[in-house]
Design a protein around this nucleic acid. Sequence first.
DNA 1: AGGCTCATGTAACCGGTTACATGATTAT
DNA 2: ATAATCATGTAACCGGTTACATGAGCCT
Lengths: 186, 186
Amino acid sequence: MSLGFGILGFLNYGPMSGYDLVKAFESSLQFFWHAQNSQIYLELKKLEKKGYIDGETVIQSDRPNKKIFSITEAGKRAFMDWLAKGAEEDATHFKSAFLMKVFFGGNMPPAQSADMLRKFKADCETYLEKMGETPDSIGKYGSNKEKYQTLYWQFTVDFGYCFIKTCIEWAARCIQKLENLENEMR
Amino acid sequence: MSLGFGILGFLNYGPMSGYDLVKAFESSLQFFWHAQNSQIYLELKKLEKKGYIDGETVIQSDRPNKKIFSITEAGKRAFMDWLAKGAEEDATHFKSAFLMKVFFGGNMPPAQSADMLRKFKADCETYLEKMGETPDSIGKYGSNKEKYQTLYWQFTVDFGYCFIKTCIEWAARCIQKLENLENEMR
DNA sequence: AGGCTCATGTAACCGGTTACATGATTAT
DNA sequence: ATAATCATGTAACCGGTTACATGAGCCT
């Protein structure tokens, strides 16, 4: 129910529609938690059922009607409890089908697995470039409270940046080793 | 069906039972792909149905009977196709409920989120220590073919090591910033 | 005329988790 | 005795993905 807490987190900043939430996830959490619109709408229903959020339909003439959700007191409590629980045990492990492929890379000739790693490295590099554009969008906010929030947003951006850089350096080392191996074999 | 390919990858090294596979996943892939025994047994059934593996019951007198699975030609083809496809687009993104918590850390006082980050850092450090023991177990193998395989195993271990180190350094920076903030406020 | 943005959803499916169930042998 | 290891599975559930459906208004 992590997605649910993510939604509660956004609604804790202020009321939003499902559509707004989809956008919010896309523009800020997508690096470590990307969510489909279908699932967000489903989760909103669940949260409403639990009494964590309240939905109110807003009739619009020029655009389709929308439903604006607000967090309830119970929702705030649930969200704060989740936050307060801190780092769970599983914070250190993650899933990667790509690393599984690397693990079994010995079934391919070095040239082929080197290509795979080069592709990965290139993907990381384009990702970094795209990232370089966003920091400004987080930018500077007015109040101190908002500045305090952005500190944490910066933390996650920083994490993403370091993570990708580590990936690039690692891939470069692997490629180097495979190239050396190819030269030795010649 | 990544888990399925992982199983095929192991069976490509040689026949194994479901139990053996559970152990194999635990001891080598667990950093980036941990799997429950229940799911491995389910996946084995699916793979058998698809004709990618063959199961043969072995009757044992001293221990419970077991079912030894071997990869078929079709299975080998499917596995090699998956490998050859190389790095998929999603190789760069991963999911982390912990980072989502950090993202919403602005809802807590700095002392509390610093604690969360300290806990995370400590978890990473114990993880690193545990890791320091394993490299030998991958160790040295006889044939050149085996040595070539272990190169890739070493790659994934190296990735894990760098990843955790990056996490520790990142957490330290975040904690530092939060501590500075607390001092300023005093 | 065609495509984009706003806006909300349903249905089928799949991958994975949690919990439970069984039962023999071997080591401490 | 009892704990661990060997060995295989089922059932309920949940979180998430893919694909599909609808429809109005705005921009080019």
